[in-house]
Design a protein around this nucleic acid. Structure first.
Lengths: 344, 344
DNA sequence: TACAAAAATGTTACCGATAACATTTTTCCG
DNA sequence: CGGAAAAATGTTATCGGTAACATTTTTGTA
């Protein structure tokens, strides 16, 4: 029983006698043996493993991407190697080496809240791109030599802005994110251009966005609702993501303000909890599942990196936090109420 | 420049002349070369990779475990290989082989909502245990030959049950989960024994739990609040987890019932969104971070599997959904209101 | 039965890094 | 400057699986 025969039995080669096969199989079963994919990987030069690089799996939007990606990869016999990005400054060269050393079959990069200008991430992507195909969830940039998937927000942003406007909102603020950051920059631009088209550009006092967590949402809305004079406070919010929206809603409630009567709010990502907030959160669906599955398929079929962009339309999912179910009537008693309640 | 010299340069061996080191380093830098950890793994017999096996990364509680585990593993130069369990019947022998074939350095098993009696999972664990150390988040069982981490719920369950009782609740239902399932079985037993100690065993009409999602929570509470006569409906809920609680709260709101005035509710897991629900959800913290970090440390230091249990106390985190901030006064106007509103 | 063709099994080399050992080069002192 | 000790570098074998090739066994037919 040479090693080659065992290989043949394992791979179901037809040129093995039935007696031999049975004998080998018996030993395999007795030992619960499975051939080392480490050795297979080394021999074949294919690890059948895809890396997913993201800021934090704690963000449910990323978790949804990873979940779908894992499922899709496994269907083709590939598996997922997880890599949470450390903060800037902690992404040592050593960690990048580690990523290259793994000889992954491909990398799915979910930058999200990562600064465009983070030089460490650029170095990471540049170096990685020489070794494996990359697909990233990020707005297209001419200098990126791999596939970028992103959402065309223009339709949804227009719908969201007009929706809020038609419901009587004339002071609409954007909240969360940061303009110099890949993804939130794109979202900000989309929202901003629509607000300007309506003649409702957010005044500078609304601030320059700021973060992607619940705490960031709380802080920002608290600032606007206390520092600004009542007549200048926003009556509607476009949030960078649903987490920020969640924080903002919480803060508004704590201040005794009603949603959507006093402040309407629209989130982004359409995360799993959106239908379950009080009121249910109107949000923009970013097609996480489709992005993830198609990213994996691209990685599996790609032989070399090539610049390309794959666009999916984002769609506004209307629930109650934007005030749609109240119509214009919901607006009437708002101002007095809001100003009285929030003036602390 | 033989391969051995390159190895010596990479590993900083002292016995390399400075000129040689510089020459080799220059080539390394020019090519952006990093040594293949696949080959290293084969040679050393250590993949420095830990597998995390779980039902779905979409559950934020699991995501929190994975996030902390990834961070802890990376500190020791290890990385995480993700494996989402398919449904029963779809966990083929082939997938188990794949898991063994990877020659992982250890496996962190997060069973959660997995049936104790799922024979495929038992086979998975039995076979895996022969090849690598395992740490699982699950209640201890005499037949498991590896480390089990779990929460001692008795203190928190007692606190929760008495808390609800002292606030005037005499009809307390458990909602979600399934008795024949590892984790939810333990939670159910803990809650049940406390309710019985108070002389408030849930009547059979409250049903036999049922599931771990928002939808399950909605369905169960809808059933109780419509099928049961008003006088028998629960005035408080102990939810299997926070997702079920989220669904139940949503359904209660839709029925026009107030939380906690009409129905008080306590969740489990203390997920990230608990402080942000309306009202903020009282929940039982399960120490995800501590479990995950210590699980990784155990895996890294373990040489062989040995049965052991590591217990951490679960703690009740009181917010508003249980009615604590209202005290007994919150109970007074409840009954009339609840019965009138929910009687559809 | 003999012998060629076909089938079954065995052998060798390779993937890439590295430990152990072998060889070459350098150093340093008499 | 010779030559031994020390330092630097090269060579070989190994990890486990497998492709390619080599060899042995079986089959089938004259």
């Amino acid at each position: 029983m040479s090693a080659a025969t065992v290989t043949r039995v394992l791979n179901g080669s037809p040129s093995v006698r039935e007696v031999t096969r049975a004998r080998v199989q018996q030993v395999i079963d007795a030992h619960g043996y499975a051939p080392s994919s480490v050795a297979q990987d080394l021999g074949s030069g294919n690890t059948k493993t895809l890396g997913i690089i993201l800021p934090s799996i704690r963000n449910p939007y990323y978790a949804a991407l990873v979940s779908a990606a894992d499922d899709e990869a496994r269907r083709s016999g590939y598996s997922i190697w997880l890599y949470q990005l450390p903060r800037e400054g902690e992404l040592s060269a050593q960690l990048i080496e580690n990523l290259i050393a793994r000889r992954l079959s491909g990398a799915f990069f979910i930058g999200g809240f990562s600064d465009v200008d983070r030089p460490d991430l650029r170095e990471l992507l540049d170096r990685l791109g020489k070794y494996m195909p990359i697909v990233a969830i990020c707005p297209p940039r001419p200098d990126l030599g791999f596939i970028c998937m992103y959402n065309d927000l223009s339709g949804a942003a227009r719908q969201a802005a007009r929706h809020l406007f038609l419901l009587g909102n004339e002071r609409i603020a954007m909240i969360g994110g940061a303009r110099n950051v890949i993804e939130s920059g794109a979202r900000a631009v989309a929202f901003l251009s629509e607000l300007e088209a309506l003649g409702l550009p957010p005044p500078p006092e609304y601030g320059h966005l700021g973060g992607g967590t619940m705490e960031d949402g709380m802080r920002e809305i608290h600032r606007m609702m206390t520092v600004l004079p009542p007549a200048e406070r926003p009556t509607a919010l476009l949030a960078y993501n649903d987490l920020v929206a969640l924080g903002a809603m919480h803060q508004l409630r704590q201040m005794g303000l009603r949603i959507p009567e006093d402040v309407a709010i629209i989130g982004c990502d359409n995360q799993f909890f959106c239908p379950y907030t009080a009121p249910p959160l109107t949000s923009i669906d970013m097609q996480a599942e489709e992005h993830a599955r198609s990213a994996i398929r691209e990685l599996l079929s790609a032989s070399e990196n090539h610049a390309a962009t794959i666009v999916r339309a984002a769609t506004l999912i209307i629930r109650e936090s934007c005030g749609a179910h109240l119509g214009m009537r919901g607006r009437a008693p708002r101002h007095e109420n809001r100003e009285a309640a929030a003036d602390d």
